[in-house]
Design a protein around this nucleic acid. Sequence first.
DNA 1: GCCGTTTTCGGCCCGACTGTTTTCAGTCG
Length: 557
Amino acid sequence: MERAAGPSNADAANLLERYGALLELSGESPFRVRAYHRAAESVRHLDAPLADVARSGALREIPGVGEGIAAILQEYLQRGTFSGYDDLTARFPHSLLDILALPGVGVKTVMKLYNELGIATLPELEAAAVSGALRATKGFGAKLEATVLSGLETLAGRSGRMPIGEALPLGRSLAAALRQALPGRVALAGSARRFTETVGDIDIVVETTDPDATVARIAAMPIVGAVVDRFESGLRVRLQSGIEADIFLTPPQRFGATLVRATGPAAHVQRLAPLPEAADEAAVYAARGLPWIPPELRLGGEEFDRYPEIPSLVVMDDIRGELHCHSTWSDGAASIADMAAAAALRGYAFLGITDHSHGLGIASGLDVARLRAQRAEIAAVSGPVDLLAGSEVEVRRDGSLDFDDATLAALDVVVASLHVGLRQPREQLMDRLLGVLRNPNVDIIAHPSGRLIERRPPGDFDWPTAFAVAAETGTALEINADPMRLDLKHDLAAAALRAGCTLTINCDAHHPDGFTNMEYGIAVARQAWARPEHIINTWSPERLHAWLTERGSGAGP
DNA sequence: GCCGTTTTCGGCCCGACTGTTTTCAGTCG
């Protein structure tokens, strides 16, 4: 396997991102700051290595990269940094960016802390908050103190656990590298294999008859920075990226049992105890009279009672299309044509284009006039897949929608979302949600709880009531497959199914790459024991169209 | 800093909530 020389696209994107943040601290125009963030996103999603793009002279063809940023990227590729970045890091301590990352702390607060109190690091900030120095400063009060302390607490609680969207690709690439370097079987284990929302560390099982030789080979791998620990049954390594991973060594005849144990969770493994010595996982389960239980279903409970249902649960191949994605018409990064092509490449039959409505100004949401114009483009592009003209319509704070009923009824598919006012009291929040569920023009409620994993708690909804009404109106509830959302989460999705609700799984893709997140949504749906018939985007295009038409929209223009 | 069936210069990123004040600045989705 040949490895591309030079820094990764992600490294370049992160540098542009940091530079943008530093520019913001220095008081630069918000538009200039934004330009760097936009360029960073484009670079992050490039199909080819940045160095190759530069060599072919196509840097300026990257969206958001003009003369200035192209020159910066050239310099970065040659020197590993660029002079503008060096200048700014000389002016501001890099650690100010850590403070800027605290929720509720923006540029103005960071610079005031730095200039008036000399605070440049998180520990200094914590000391100032604890000692009361913050609230003693003019312009700061008890609330900022509380914001800072709770933000620091969140950061501390966060440390160590990665979102599944990072952990799984990382675990897979480590397993692939080990497979390349070692003769025996290699398998990803641990919570990443089980698709838990967050992952503490990467676990891998490696088969070997010569542990010492295997350890030596692993230690010599380029991806491995250092062996941190060597224990009885394996070793702990620190990767070049700084992430640590446990590698368990096992003789071939015990590979299955070791993989079950290393995959966990403890409650699941306990039900199988004592684990029979077996060369593969299926044999472990067979010895207990069970079929092989897929890792994402290993939760230590239901899987031992409901296993006959496993073959009927939804799988990736059941998905015929998606009903919630974005394009450059709002905050997406790709054209409708590009999104349609990506969907076609995945074998999808249909794709709902649902850009934001105007209420979400920051996402440059569409007003009625632009919605009409977009509809024409959608009609022109439709071909590689069946495109549905839709909207992700904003549910405003007062519960009203951004578009009137006639506008919504003319759309093929309507996805309603609560992005604002998620901290409202339960009663108000439920009034909004129930009102939207009862609107016959709304087909889908997107990311119903509004949570962002480890960043924002869900809204305070009364789920039994919400699910009862959704079951009555037939409105589909989304499992949003974005690994930062996974919303509904699996236990809520299971409760929704018990209440008789219909579901849909969507990536909420803002870029062609976004569709690859589908596997996370599938895992959540399976953890909720969902079958294809529960999920509207597994249905045939004919059945889906009939359902949409029946619901009051989809009648066409 | 980028970009152009509004424009090669002048837009681009709006509106509400919160906290700290006392008429508004800062943050965020």
